[in-house]
Design a protein around this nucleic acid. Structure first.
Lengths: 220, 220
DNA sequence: TTTGGCAATTTGTGATCACATGTCAGCCTA
DNA sequence: TAGGCTGACATGTGATCACAAATTGCCAAA
């Protein structure tokens, strides 16, 4: 960690600043459920892993805390959040509200190419389920939703939805671990069918089910 | 800015860390419309104003950028965002979605004490309008909404709503400047009436109008 | 007068340091 | 042996510095 400094973003390796790189990586990990709820992180540890000093690590962590992806204890320690059932219910309700709206806005713009792509992704989702790959399942499932919502041309709403996903990330993992293992993505098929038929009420219903069903079955 | 250091949180003056203090202050300013859209900020300037170094200033700014309260240019300069009409429409739709839900959840818990409080706040809102005090109007208007939503016992949703307010802050100011000056808070009266009557559909409608009407009248 | 370019200044980024606090293990005492 | 205390270590916070890039201002040339 000496003062070599002036290596001019060698080879456009990552193209972004250090804290951006750290932030992106951690964000993806959290959103995809690669970190367990309550898992602790340290600034020096993050810095060491990414080969940067504490400064960019701190900035990345602060950003994630601001988005609700990480929990900051009163003594300043950071960890992934352990959500209460009430909070999970709230976040599920938020998902339903925002994503139903996004899907509704995407519907009139959904052409065949999009539906084909969704079907392809859905195949990968099914594959991940059969492989019991929790992280892969979460990732492709979110990709399915994001692909649909991108058509809504509503970046602020999409960002909001992603923030909710982020907050649910660590919980998702342990959730889909205890959930029914092999159910096929039935709701996804309903979503695709509603898109094909241009059936907005059906789309809203299918989406609400897809978003809500998994999260409600925790009961704990 | 010398190394005095060990003053032990003298007198519990602010009770919080430096970056927290900076963050809170800036956040309030932005949410209340005290900063114009496109207004530039510098880390050293912030640090100077609050008597801190660049480090806590940077953390506060990062946090606000993560929440969408500040815009970060490609060269790293920060300023308040200048929202496009499309984005304003999106944010208004998000307000409607989330706040209608919050109000709906608050309705069964809304007792007389709450309604009285809302009426008192609404009186202040009217006073702010008659005084042409834009910042005061925004502040008390948000206080009206927050007071209602707190009853919903849904902190994640409330946080989401506040994030939207934050993003709209700078725009609000210039918006309510060019808007009709002296209209009384008619929708607020409708909201209160619906709360008294326990009329959920009416509450949803009144709230949607209140949230949406101002934001739609921009047209640029 | 206008425009192009160069230099000074401003500004963000990241590293490092000093320090206070929090955490935890091990030891001493009752 | 159990419980509390102490010390070492880990960790977050904030200040300062060096540096690169962007911005600005200024002067000269057309």
């Amino acid at each position: 960690m000496e003062k070599i400094a002036s290596l001019p973003r060698a080879h456009a390796e990552t193209s972004a600043s250090a804290h951006e790189r750290v932030y992106r990586t951690l964000r993806t990990r959290i959103m995809h459920g690669e970190l367990a709820p309550g898992e602790a992180l340290t600034l020096r540890g993050i810095g060491k892993e990414f080969g940067v000093s504490m400064t960019p690590a701190r900035e990345a962590v602060r950003r994630l805390v601001a988005e609700g992806a990480l929990f900051l204890s009163s003594s300043g320690r950071v960890s992934t959040p352990e959500l209460t059932n009430e909070r999970i219910e709230e976040l599920a309700a938020l998902r339903a509200l925002i994503e139903v709206e996004l899907a509704s806005r995407a519907l009139p713009r959904a052409h065949m190419a999009l539906i084909d792509r969704l079907q392809t992704i859905n195949g990968v989702v099914a594959e991940m389920i059969s492989k019991r790959d929790a992280v892969g399942y979460i990732r492709t499932n979110l990709e399915f939703h994001r692909t649909l919502y991108l058509r809504a041309q509503a970046p602020a709403m999409l960002a909001m939805a992603e923030t909710v996903w982020l907050q649910l990330g660590p919980t998702m993992r342990s959730l889909y671990g205890r959930l029914g293992r092999t159910e096929p993505p039935h709701n996804h098929k309903l979503i695709i069918a509603a898109l094909k038929a241009g059936d907005e009420p059906g789309l809203r219903l299918a989406l609400r089910s897809d978003v809500t069903q998994g999260l409600r079955l925790l009961a704990t």
